[in-house]
Design a protein around this nucleic acid. Structure first.
Lengths: 186, 186
DNA sequence: AAAATTACTTACTAGTTAGTAAGTTTTGCA
DNA sequence: TGCAAAACTTACTAACTAGTAAGTAATTTT
């Protein structure tokens, strides 16, 4: 019987980080929202760094499993699957992605979280690069320059679009996605 | 003799918001760094909302003046001027742009700041749209789809790239800029 | 059944936060 | 020179922050 409470804390903390950021994440908010005491959260995650690191790690794992789950599928299909993953954040309370949240909170992050977030972003851009590269080879995608450059552009555009959508509405995100897909057409 | 102190507070607050975000901006940090007392900052900016709103307004004004200053120049030149404006953030302590900072801190922002940031972003995307549209008409730029869609993509990509550069290095931002410029070539 | 481990609660600390009220100094002006 | 307004300082508050030590109840292991 593994710790359900720890999972619940991590899940809520994940949502809160995507909503308000790591610095504004508080033990009080977590404990009250889960109907427990402050110290109970500290029991599972002694320090805030422990909690924050676990949050980023879990989100990283979600992506890794996602990448494995779409492996072998068509390149357009893989891209669409990623886009709908991000779109869920938008529709679920205008969250931003974990990488974007980590990057904007960067200066307040402990080193362990910085490194984990960097590894996460490196893996995502790597995945994008491979999908784009392969998609170009089999004629599914078209773009100028290197796959790595295009991947860098796309990841940053999507992260930025999620954030900008908060300010000027979800249509902005949809417009960015539409433009990206349009430009990838052969 | 206008208030120099108020300007200095606003300037430091601007830098801090771009570094650590609005929620982590503290009167204590500002006052100690400027060699004054907490209450002195409150004298000029009674509430944190007053300060935060002024910070976004001033940054908005900087952009408005920038846009006016490059008006009439070549479209490629205008775009390059904007890019070097952003690149200064990167080189000056890995700041992120005010709009990106506002968007990621959105859930913690008072309404006045949300509205000001939204107006700011609307103005920036509008400026981009006009520059792209005109640049396409005179053959300086090439892109598929609408200028508005391309503008949405570019603003989000640049904001996201500034943030991602914190995690994986400044080369990421440069790669995104290079890709954007490459794709705009006729 | 006893011992030990897990999962908490109670109660607290030291530090930080925005914000305020009242008093003081500095500055500009008549 | 004297008055008034501007620009502060001193001293404080209430609320919040992460974190801890000690105690308790439940569960698991021996």
């Amino acid at each position: 019987m593994r710790s359900e409470t720890k999972d619940k804390i991590a899940e809520l903390a994940t949502e809160l980080v995507q909503q308000v950021g790591y610095p504004s994440l508080s033990y009080q908010q977590i404990s009250s929202q889960l109907g427990m005491k402050n110290a109970a959260v500290h029991y599972h995650f002694p320090s805030k760094e422990d909690l924050g690191l676990d949050v980023v790690r879990r989100d990283h794992e979600v992506f890794t499993k996602f990448a494995a789950s779409v492996q072998g599928k068509g390149h357009t299909e893989q891209l669409d699957a990623f886009l709908s993953l991000y779109q869920q954040y938008l529709e679920n309370g205008n969250r931003i992605c974990m990488i974007g949240a980590s990057a904007s909170d960067y200066k307040q992050l402990p080193d362990s979280m910085r490194q984990e977030a960097a590894a996460y972003l490196t893996e995502v851009t790597g995945w994008f690069t491979r999908v784009l590269e392969a998609g170009k080879a089999d004629g599914a995608f078209h773009f100028k320059g290197s796959a790595a450059g295009k991947a860098a552009l796309m990841t940053s555009a999507l992260a930025g679009a999620l954030q900008h959508a908060r300010l000027i509405g979800n249509d902005h995100y949809l417009a960015v996605v539409a433009q990206l897909k349009l430009e990838l057409k052969p």
